[in-house]
């Protein structure tokens, strides 16, 4: 029953992975910007959860939505002050700009928290669910569940609120949205803030399961890339599909070529996808 256990391992990460990529995909889709900073913001969310647990004893699962709220405003401000002036510039400029922000934030966190890996020790441990031979750790189940709920909440916001419709309209056609009376600059800033908020949620959930370090931001960014390309850019269902696909692929990959090669494999998979099917597995346009 090894294959079943491996499948469960993969699926148990899927919702969390979807959460990692959702904000990144939203920003890419709506602002047409690759936010290199996303990985660092995830790490920041993780540290916030770690210290909230250490100092205040708040469970990271409860803290996840708080981390999201805490990161919304900085994201909003960063977009408004730093990113907004270069929105219309070539891809290279926005990439270099967000890369510069990442260098800064990573270095800041390295100085503040050192490079040591920090792990939240839940007391008492949550334990595992057992179905015959198949084991499912409860912390992963919670993380992936809360991740999925958060992504679902984002989806609901986009689908059924006025703000969400404004975001979708700006994504579809910036000029037309502007003519319809939508404040495009404000919408961009809010969408970016939602993106950083999702990074905060994802970071808190990650910290509940995995050790975190200021060195791991590029790894999370890489995962967000892969998930977006797997599922297709800019759609919430695509992110969920991509998240579960990456979880399962990594899980089986670790079994097939050894865990030390799993990262290489997912990056090679990314290049193969880019070479063959850059629009993603679903291959549709439009943020829905």
């Amino acid at each position: 029953m090894l294959w079943l256990q491996v499948l469960v391992n993969g699926l148990a990460l899927g919702g969390l992975y979807a959460c990692i990529a959702a904000g990144f995909s939203l920003v890419w889709g709506v602002l047409n910007i690759i936010n290199i900073l996303h990985g660092s913001l995830i790490v920041l969310g993780g540290y916030l959860a770690f210290f909230a647990h250490l100092q205040l004893g708040i469970s990271p699962f409860l803290f996840a939505p708080i981390a999201g709220m805490l990161l919304f405003l900085p994201g909003f401000a960063i977009q408004r002050v730093i990113i907004s002036p270069v929105m219309a510039r070539p891809v290279l400029m926005t990439l270099v700009l967000t890369f510069g922000l990442t260098l800064f934030l990573d270095n800041l966190m390295l100085v503040a928290f050192t490079a040591d890996y920090r792990k939240i020790n839940l007391q008492p441990p949550l334990g595992v669910l057992e179905f015959g031979d198949v084991v499912l750790p409860l912390d992963r189940l919670y993380a992936t569940g809360i991740g999925l709920v958060s992504v679902g909440a984002l989806w609901l916001v986009l689908r059924s609120t006025q703000l969400g419709r404004a975001i979708v309209a700006v994504r579809m056609d910036r000029d037309a949205a502007s003519l319809m009376g939508i404040n495009v600059r404000l919408t961009h800033a809010i969408a970016f803030g939602l993106g950083t908020a999702m990074a905060g949620v994802a970071g808190a959930l990650l910290a509940a399961i995995f050790p975190i370090s200021s060195l791991s931001s590029s790894g999370y960014l890489g995962k967000a890339f892969v998930i977006c390309v797997l599922g297709g850019l800019g759609s919430v269902p695509g992110v969920v599909l991509g998240g579960f696909a990456l979880g399962v692929i990594e899980s089986y990959g670790a079994l097939a070529v050894g865990p030390e090669n799993a990262l290489t494999m997912s990056f090679l998979l990314l290049i193969a996808l880019l070479a063959l099917r850059p629009t993603g597995l679903l291959g549709r346009k439009g943020f829905t």
Partner: peptide, 8 residues
């Protein structure tokens, strides 16, 4: 970090 600020 300074390099990052410089880039920005």
């Amino acid at each position: 970090g300074f390099l990052g600020l410089l880039v920005v």
